[in-house]
Structure formats: C-alpha cells, structure tokens
Design a protein around this nucleic acid. Structure first.
Lengths: 239, 239
DNA sequence: CGTGTCGTTGAGCGCTTTCAACCCTGGTGG
DNA sequence: CCACCAGGGTTGAAAGCGCTCAACGACACG
C-alpha cells in the first residue's frame, strides 16, 4: 500500500475525469477534493477487512478490486468485482458502521479515497451527490440479486447456465461472447462452486455443443439451450 | 388486492405516522401524499412479479411481505422479509428498471404506495428524502450481505449456526432467544436448505445441548459453540 | 371429527467436494 | 533455443452430504 501525495489540483483532475462526479456543484467537488487522496495497492494487497470501521469512500481509478466474504476453511465467497469508475463499501459507509466484507486488490490498482465527513456533509445539501450514491447502491443491490440468483439453483449446470444467461447482451442473437472478469477459480466461488466442478461443467456444456471455451472467453452458441437448462429438470415430468 | 380510497388528509396521517418520513419538508410530504394511495393485500396475494416495471415505491404499513426469487422447480429463494415501516423494491425503482424479484403478502397486509415521479421529483431537491432512501438501500445491502454470508457455507450446520449467530442481540450473554420471523420452511429456503435438513440440523444441535427449540422460538444456550461451528464469520485479526 | 398446513423422521440416491496427480502456457534466464 | 518454473486449469477416483420421496405426527380450524 502506498499513499500518493498529490496536489489538490491533481486530485481535482482525477475527480473530474470520473463519471461518478460529473455534473456536481463545484462547491461539492472542491470539498470532496479537499478530503480526498489517492492510494496505490499491489496485487493481493488488502484494502480493508470485515469489521473495520468504514470511514472513507473508495472509488476505483484503475485496476480491479475483489470484495469477498471470508469463509471457514480459508475459502472465500466473491461478492463483487469492482472496476474503474465504481465505488465499493458504500452501504457500511452511509450507515457509519463496520465493513461487511473484505476487499483486496485483484490487480495493481489505484483508488480515490474520500473522507466520510466531507462526503456526508455534502450529501446533505447536494441532492445530485446523494443521487449518485443511490445509483451506486442500486447497482450493488442489482448485482447482489443476480449473484444470489445464480448461486442458488441446485445443480452446478443450472448455476453456470444462469451466469452465462445473465451476461447475454441486450441485442443478443443466437450466440454471443462472455469474457470472464477474473480467474475461473474466482468466478467459480461466485457461483458457490469449486474450480474443478466449474471446469467439468464447462467441458460438459462444450461437448453438448452449447458453448465454446477458449481460456477466459466463452462463446455461447445456443441461448435457447441455456434457458432450457434453467427451466428444465422438470420438463420430464407432466406436472 | 384491494385499493382503498382515502382522502388526502387520511393519507397524510399515515405518512406522518411512519418513521420513514419523519422530519421531511412539508412540501415533500404534501407532494408525496398527492401521489400516494393505500392498498390491502390478502395472504399469498402477489404485490409484483419479477420483470414488471417498477414505477411505485412500496412501504409496509402492516403485515409482512416476502421478497423472493422464483426458482426452476417451483421452488423459491426468500431474499427478504419486509415488516412495518420498511420499503422494498427501491433499487429497481431508483434505476427505473424492472423488478428483480417477486413479492407476495406473507400475511394480510397494508401497503402505502407512492408514485415514482413524485418521489424522484422530490428526491432531486430534498436531500433528507434522498438520505432516507439511502438508509433503506443500505439496510437492504447489509441484509443481503448477511443473507449471502449465511447461505454460502458448505455444511448445513454452519449455515444454521451462522444464521443464529447473526441474530444474537448486541448485549448477548451466554444465551439468548431467536424468534423465527416466518415458517421454518421459508427460513430454510433463506439458508438454501430444505425444511427437512433444517429440521434435522436443529434437532442435532438441540441434542448437543447447543440450543433449545420450542416451535419458532429458539433459545441459544452456548454462543461459543456457534462461533466454534463457523469460526470465520468473525472479523479477521491482523496476522 | 375431517381437513389442511406445518413439521418431523426415515431410507436411498446423486451430486459436489475433496484430494490427488497431471497438463499447459507464458515468462525467465542460461 | 531450450530448460525450467509457477500459476492456472484439467482430469480422475473416492467419499460425504444434502436432496428427494414418502409416510407420519402435531396442531389449528371449520
């Protein structure tokens, strides 16, 4: 971890480049910048741990952050992968409580870190800022909902099918590509699977001609088949 | 479902009685009331379905609402149980997108329903209102995080232990009581378990002298034993 | 008393996990 | 150019665990 000392004008530059802060009052931008700093994290370096007080807002400037729940047997459950322009740990921050999960840098990353006091003070008077935080939280809820949805189904095949189906582009024709955002092992934990099972399921689906796998690139060939997997296991039975 | 025609003053009364709207500008209260109505739902009556447009804010005035993800095999995954004074479906509402889950009345219930336009219009100028929505969403995220945490562990025992441990009161001594908010079957689905497995685990833990079960009331006798069962749900200590 | 819902208990099966070894690819240095 | 290595990924065999299915018990309600 490495705090990067930057002039206020430099911080302001960074803030201005982020969509997150587009269109905010200059008064807000100034005050946020005054309570902000940038930090660099190496791969695998922890940002915060579950249970620590949440007194700063974290926004990803570059790299990728993994948010996860530590599990009993040194395992972990990936809750979210945060990329450039997104924030994380917002719920805890807003409530002024302890962090609910751990966060580590998945790659070498730069974070913009803003003081909670400055943020809360401005959120009380600048509705646009409050709205941005609502946006962030709403997307988090949406993401967690999908997460729950795709890690709940019984069979591993259904979970993988669900995962791939959720990632189909809006204009999806018969086939489309999905690029895994990280290692297969971590994607597997997001689905509550082991990397082994994940691998086996992918191979099976590939053999069935449903998908093609080239490293982290997965080409879905038959969307209908995915939907079939999601609703099937019951198609066999007449009611 | 039954729309209850009420005078504006009656609606205002209801709004004033809810903590949700405490301390808001009168201008906000008036406009929200103007776009509000109350509705009654019988037990098992659907409020909305996944995929429907989210164009109203729902707040529970009385009763209990179950928010769940429909599953392939006529199963369901309970995401949240919403009680008096709480709202649901806020994330979809804020984003102006489709609902992410289904909602049904778990008991006979009354809901306060507020028009999205009125809400968004006021949230743009009344930061306190925006703050309330942030509160609601933050608690939802917190709740979903706990949900994820308690339905992720491998063993059924760990999940149940985690669930009970999360519900320990702040001032917990050696023992405390947990009252299940609904049927054991639904609590089980929240933990991604069948009611049968849930039942078996409870019996096992009771035999071990770890808990006592009397219907939906569970008395935890040995908190330490719970922590032993899932040692990693606690905050991590630095190495 | 029937009837329905909730909850319990039992038996057997199938899936996922576990643990193991192995493969493959990219990077590094001789 | 090749030998070597580490990390990500694959594959195989065995075993544990929760699910399914089915029957039964408890309790409330009419």
């Amino acid at each position: 971890m490495n705090a990067i000392p930057l002039t206020h004008t430099r911080i302001s530059e960074i803030i201005n480049r982020l969509d997150y802060f587009h269109g905010l009052e200059t008064e807000t931008l100034d005050q946020l910048a005054a309570g902000a700093r940038q930090m660099a994290f190496r791969r695998d370096e922890p940002i915060f741990h579950k249970g620590m007080p949440a007194d700063t807002l974290h926004i990803v400037v570059s790299g990728q952050i993994k948010v996860f729940l530590p599990q009993p047997n040194t395992g972990e459950k990936v809750v979210a992968l945060v990329e450039r322009g997104e924030s994380f740990g917002v719920a805890s921050l807003w409530l002024g409580e302890a962090h609910l999960a751990d966060a580590v840098a998945n790659k070498d990353s730069h974070l913009l870190i803003i003081d909670r006091q400055a943020l809360m003070r401005r959120a009380r008077v600048d509705c646009v800022l409050a709205g941005r935080l609502m946006d962030a939280l709403s997307h988090r809820v949406k993401d967690m909902m999908r997460n729950l949805e795709s890690c709940t189904p019984k069979s591993a095949q259904q979970r993988v099918a669900c995962y791939l189906w959720q990632r189909r582009p809006a204009d999806a024709g018969h086939h489309y590509d999905v690029l895994l955002p990280t290692t297969k092992r971590e994607v597997a934990t997001k689905l509550n699977l082991t990397q082994e099972t994940f691998s086996r399921v992918l191979r099976q689906m590939a053999e069935d001609g449903c998908i093609e796998v080239k490293g982290r690139l997965i080409r879905v060939l038959a969307v209908a088949r995915l939907e079939g997997l999601n609703s099937a296991t019951r198609a066999l039975q007449p009611e």
